[in-house]
């Protein structure tokens, strides 16, 4: 049986690695939760994997801005290996803190563009308050290997204090033109994100970053209205897409 190996990369403070591993296992991957220090010592762990996940959490406590230190570690110690990983056509997903990390490494959105994830804002004032709630996500990119086949909206929770997508107007226009906006908040925009952007992909379509947590809605019973008989909005199809793509790589 072809179970592609998925590297779930942990830093001190990563805390949704178990949720991501559960989702990947469910859709037929072989997830390995590995500390980033182990990968520094043994980069083969990355080479031997066909899919990379940077999961949610508070890497290094996020005390100086979300994801900044984890990104610095990756840039200073693993940047070539990461570039090779994407060049080899292998998919990468960064969720919540992982999205923040990928943005700070420059892997997202790629092509020299820069975006940022700032403190959640209500109106014109950022309050930075952590918010945990459920959101509706509209898949928006045909370029991303993760979302191209998604035909329906996804429902899943958010849990973050720094998720407000920010970029300059030129970058936004480029992202729109390149079909790099992977997900938009379909109902309420919970954090003041520009253009309701919840996630973006890189210009190869292999790297996806998003603030919400699809890994926490892979079973119907994880939905808040499941006891009201609600089904649907499952996010496992997102992981299936990534794992299917990973199966084609070596």
């Amino acid at each position: 049986m072809n179970r592609p190996r998925a590297l779930v990369l942990r830093a001190p403070g990563t805390n949704r690695d178990g949720d991501a591993a559960f989702a990947l296992d469910l859709v037929g991957a072989d997830p390995r939760r590995v500390l980033v220090s182990e990968v520094f010592d043994n980069p083969k762990l990355l080479h031997e994997s066909q899919l990379l996940v940077i999961p949610g959490g508070f890497s290094f406590a996020d005390a100086l801005g979300a994801g900044r230190l984890f990104a610095l570690e990756l840039v200073t110690r693993l940047s070539e290996e990461l570039a090779e990983f994407v060049e080899a056509g292998k998919p990468v997903i960064g969720i919540c803190n992982g999205f923040q990390v990928l943005v700070r490494t420059g892997l997202l959105p790629g092509a020299g563009l820069t975006v940022a994830l700032g403190q959640n804002a209500v109106g014109s004032t950022s309050n930075g308050k952590f918010i945990c709630d459920w959101v509706l996500l509209q898949p928006a990119s045909k370029r991303s290997i993760w979302t191209a086949r998604l035909t329906e909206e996804i429902e899943c929770p958010i849990a973050h204090g720094e998720g407000r997508f920010v970029c300059d107007p030129e970058t936004l226009a480029a992202l729109q033109a390149n079909d790099q906006i992977a997900f938009r908040y379909a109902a309420d925009n919970p954090n003041g994100s520009l253009d309701d952007i919840a996630g973006i992909c890189d210009d190869t379509g292999l790297v996806l970053g998003l603030m919400p947590h699809p890994e926490d809605h892979v079973l119907p019973r994880q939905h808040p209205q499941s006891l009201r008989g609600h089904r649907g909005g499952l996010a496992r199809r997102l992981f299936e897409a990534g794992v299917d793509h990973a199966k084609e790589t070596r």
Binding site: N15, D19, F130, C132, A159, H213, D216, V218
Partner: peptide, 22 residues
């Protein structure tokens, strides 16, 4: 309640806020 993550670990079946509009 919304300042606290009650979704992590994917194990929450009934949340502190529930119903049609949570």
């Amino acid at each position: 309640i919304r300042r606290y993550d009650h979704e992590i670990l994917g194990a929450t079946v009934i949340r502190p806020l529930t119903g049609l509009h949570n």
